[in-house]
Write a protein that binds this DNA or RNA. Sequence first.
DNA 1: CTGTTAGCGCATTCAG
DNA 2: CTGAATGCGCTAACAG
Lengths: 348, 348
Amino acid sequence: MGKEEAGVGAPRTRRARATLRDVAEAAGTSRSTASRALGGHGYVAEHIKKRVREAADRLGYVPDASARTLKGSSSGLVGLLVSDLRNQFYAELAAGVEHTLSAAGYQVVLADDHGDEHMAQNGARAFLAMRADGVLLAPVGRAATELLVEHETPVVEVDRRSGVRGCDAVAIDSEHGARAAVEHLIALGHREIAVVIDETKWETGKGRVRGYRAALRAAGLPASRRHVLDLGLTPSDHQEELARFLDRATGVTAVFAANNVVAELVWQELKRRGSGVPERCSVVSFDDLGWMRMVEPGITAVRQPVFEMGSRGAELLLERVGNGGRRRSTEVLRPELVVRGSTAAPKH
Amino acid sequence: MGKEEAGVGAPRTRRARATLRDVAEAAGTSRSTASRALGGHGYVAEHIKKRVREAADRLGYVPDASARTLKGSSSGLVGLLVSDLRNQFYAELAAGVEHTLSAAGYQVVLADDHGDEHMAQNGARAFLAMRADGVLLAPVGRAATELLVEHETPVVEVDRRSGVRGCDAVAIDSEHGARAAVEHLIALGHREIAVVIDETKWETGKGRVRGYRAALRAAGLPASRRHVLDLGLTPSDHQEELARFLDRATGVTAVFAANNVVAELVWQELKRRGSGVPERCSVVSFDDLGWMRMVEPGITAVRQPVFEMGSRGAELLLERVGNGGRRRSTEVLRPELVVRGSTAAPKH
DNA sequence: CTGTTAGCGCATTCAG
DNA sequence: CTGAATGCGCTAACAG
């Protein structure tokens, strides 16, 4: 008795998983014919094709992706690395990426580095191991991007630019957005404007400070270092630090919060100390989240097309996958100022 | 000239990708020895091991995951299917899942079905194809779960239960939470309490309505159908529908919003029509999001341990992966009522 | 139009 | 302790 007979008649000895071989046998053809019939390439007689398809259905056949990847040149996988999925910004980014990629038939492998460069590298290595066709990164450093680029994996950096050559990027025009926000405050009559931010080492943060400074300069206002608070990314006593900053910042009539995280902090602190917004202090945020139109008064904010940025990044990546030789491009998306109630002319 | 020589001295003709064979050759050993040296199994002389490791580093060798999967019995991949990543609830769920899984060395493959059962099935098929070691689902129907379970892929349903046998589940005790919310309103003196919800076909929605009814019943209050608004999940004129509902709902002094989506809708509509919260209408939400403590007054809400639910689901899955024979379990997490300013005694 | 052959990269027998 | 041989499941040449 050959081993093929094993289990015949045995109660429910389910075959672990139907393979192309099983389908071919059931349909009475060779494996390659079955492959062609299912894959739709090459010539296969119509009636055979039908027979194979039926056999495949009957057996619940699902082609093995690993085998395909091993054999072929594409894994159908794209890596996505974000800094913090709990932050709505990244969640929306991920949604945009997923949307475009899944529509194109790719699977998204998600990794969250929690802002840690070491974890980012681990993620990159994993993407490499699974032969990801491409990777989207919101990097925390150069290392992950470099590793990937060295191994000739197409990379698109999203929202941040590490400066590594050989990758595409899509980002928001931080400088422009910040400048628009601060110009709006200046137009209302504010003269002493504070900026609160949590990182200034990447292009994103740098750009926002540049935009802030540019607006002041253009209006002939002095840029005091006392008006800049960089909280840093390491989670610490940010609330308290902000409180002390505001205590010291006498004369300040408006605050520019450089992203949604610090905007939340600023809003809470201002509310806590009963500084009326906008009567005693105007607030404008870079990044427009749902809650900002839910609170009273609504928060004036620079709206970034975050979902679109993710989906555009994915498109850029797909182009690269289709045509590796294309020259690298950086796409810059324009944000837009949405004026709500949190900004008004200063009382004095 | 053998093809091995091709490219020698040529400017930067990088080998596509170093394989174990390349490492073995560079180290002057056989492939199997190299495999053992890197994998850490079996006996390999210390100095050889070192030599292999160095060669691997030098070549930037990254083991091929597809080959491993094909050869071995585990892919190291876990599928995660959510309904809408833009919804903070699912984003946080995903964060919890990713956290636990990546710590255990697994990669997370993310799919978003946008509440469409057909896309859910596609996702499930993709997970099957890549031999996911397990899958976490927030299903929109039975089909995806059934497909996976038939193919003996461990499944954990999160936040929802399709009723399919053979899978684990972790969920929030909706009935308990809803009851606590409504009892809180009753204790404040409310007699006519409306509930707004967007689905009542799954256990989650059903449980919330049950909890609502149970609280009324326990207090001897009548449960009028006029006080229940089920908006349905299909995106339509929800805002308008809600407005009409509130117009008709004379006598209602409090609204129970059954999840974060409808809570936002209710809050906006109440604000729009200037119905003071809580003076003219109290509001309590099932699901506590960041904005609910940012608005004035803060929204009383049933807080669900969402991140924890994701991470607990992942743990359950890992147990199953380690021990497929374990009997299936459903874990129920208790939510907690957080009282804020949006609920108060009715004026009249 | 169909079947035979070969090999993707790896880990695992089994002999030495 | 090491190496040669084998096969995971699939597809792409190549002959028939």
